[in-house]
Design a protein around this nucleic acid. Structure first.
Lengths: 305, 305
DNA sequence: CTATATATACTCAATAAGAGCATATATAGC
DNA sequence: GCTATATATGCTCTTATTGAGTATATATAG
């Protein structure tokens, strides 16, 4: 019963001291598009060092963000922890990244940027992204050349050649483009790279992680409701889902999905659109909702996919 | 366009130095039950400090584990990063936890322990856990008393009162039991606590995270195949899924699910059981599998649920 | 009154999931 | 050889769920 592990890992080895940095990806929706709050002209995220007095990592992050900007954070989750070795300094830097949703109600002029400014190929709500995707397919094919396994990976991840587009694979797509040298962050790339804003350090990778994670989360949890105003129309809810997923959905089926589960309850109020029939305002109803299933493994896509 | 964040977060603040520890939850299946490799009589996990020469956190963890125990790691993923403030020392300790699957083929006597020794209520493959769950329900009801919202949370998380049991909520269940003072780790608890082994520090919480994460992962990814031998029968595959999910499944429907997706390909060989018809041996077939859907949002549960 | 934009109800076919029956192929014991 | 037993595997049938579309209601702008 004595494990060889007990002696093989030097628990008494001198630990290396490192800096810990808390990075916050703050997501909101405006103009039917997911946005993030950025610093340094869109090149970096709000962040702050872990302090001794922080009782937990998440509280430390909330401290930095909430206490100093007045923003109330909704659904919050840890994304990923990276290390980047600071050669020459003799220690490492550990970056712990978080994603948090904020309700779009305030009008202070924060430096908002559309997530799709960084990943134009991820917004497939209409056909405008098709030429770009075609370019990507061509460039990837050149790169993968006769490496069948690599090309197989490309087709799966980008939904090429009768594969379906999986919106949750945004991180894998970014990594593939990085490996192929099609983004400016790839150190060795020399030719023309794809459109899309870049960021400092690993930050665009963190953003891709966030996009992937939020797309996964909104399917099975009521996290979207933290991005919407307290009262919303079903169309607003659908458009928020579409904005995050990057896909258009079938209207009637989406409504059926939401209402069957008693996820929302109607209020007495109505929305007054510039044109068209006024829509009933709804609110999230956690009491009556047994489970939350805003979209399954397959999104309720519209007819002309 | 100038963000108030730019000045509100002191990027130039002196970062606090901290220790970074890499913690590994190594999962395997033996005797149709998920097991983990432990140290210190089941009270802790293999772990090692982050070193300057580690090029990434995951590589650091693999280094500690693979290089020193000879174990080959399969599906690996980062779980969560915790901080625990080391008061008095003036710095923090950051723990970065990983989960990795290992194939059960080696016979070296590692200190294996069943995951369900730590969470007996999580194994619901047969009716033996029912009395325990009944006890939990009673104790939770006493604790929640007349706090309706709290009791609502209990029923949802533990599948009480016509709610369904969600196997992925193991972390939430552990946290609820912790809050209710029903596990020995709850510092204030004084009375009798529930059966189940405990661990040092936050380690049982990490294990609950791992259980939750692996249950989520096996549904949509081919991760289970990293726990099985290269060749396996469909029953073995099903039993591995059942072991991880903690639920029994409907045999014929499970087979249909697997075979429809061309997830596996049959080999020429057969398994020779002590009794019964020999079963065809299969192997994982990533080439023909378009997607992996070993169980949906709902598991293919058997008739007598 | 018309064009337009939205909201909402309802239908129908295709697919997937839940549950069970039937049959095939082996071993162990008599 | 026959029977009990245990597993493997094929097939059916019913019931939900999903995809896709039609039809109708209610508002505004001109």
């Amino acid at each position: 019963m004595i494990s060889p592990l007990a002696t093989s890992i030097p628990q008494n080895a001198q630990p290396v001291l490192c800096e810990a940095e808390l990075v916050a990806v703050l997501v909101s929706i405006s103009n039917n598009t997911p946005h993030i709050l950025t610093l340094e002209h869109g090149h970096s995220f709000p962040s702050g060092p872990l302090m001794v007095e922080h009782r937990s990592l998440q509280k430390g992050m909330r401290n930095w963000v909430e206490h100093q900007t007045g923003l109330k954070l909704g659904h919050t989750e840890q994304l990923y922890t990276f290390a980047d070795p600071l050669h020459g300094h003799g220690h490492q830097r550990v970056q712990i990244s978080y994603m948090a949703f904020i309700r779009q109600n305030c009008d202070h002029s924060l430096a908002e940027r559309s997530i799709y400014d960084y990943f134009p190929w991820e917004d497939r709500r209409d056909a405008t992204s098709c030429p770009l995707l075609h370019t990507i397919a061509t460039r990837l094919k050149q790169w993968a050349a006769d490496n069948m396994q690599l090309w197989q990976r490309c087709t799966t991840v980008f939904g090429l050649e009768n594969h379906v587009w999986n919106d949750e694979l945004s991180l894998q797509r970014y990594e593939l483009l990085w490996e192929a040298g099609l983004v400016p962050e790839s150190s060795w790339q020399n030719g023309a790279h794809l459109p899309g804003l870049s960021m400092h350090r690993d930050y665009r990778r963190i953003l891709a992680t966030a996009l992937s994670r939020m797309r996964a989360k909104i399917r099975y949890t009521p996290a979207v409701f933290d991005l919407l105003p307290r009262q919303f129309t079903l169309l607003q809810l659908q458009q928020a889902m579409e904005a995050l997923a990057g896909r258009a959905m079938h209207k009637q089926n989406f409504r059926r999905l939401v209402q069957q589960q008693k996820l929302v309850s109607r209020t007495e109020e109505y929305d007054s659109p510039p044109q068209g029939r006024p829509a009933q305002l709804y609110q999230f109803a956690p009491e009556t909702a047994e489970h939350c299933y805003l979209a399954g493994a397959k999104l309720p896509l519209p007819a002309i996919s």
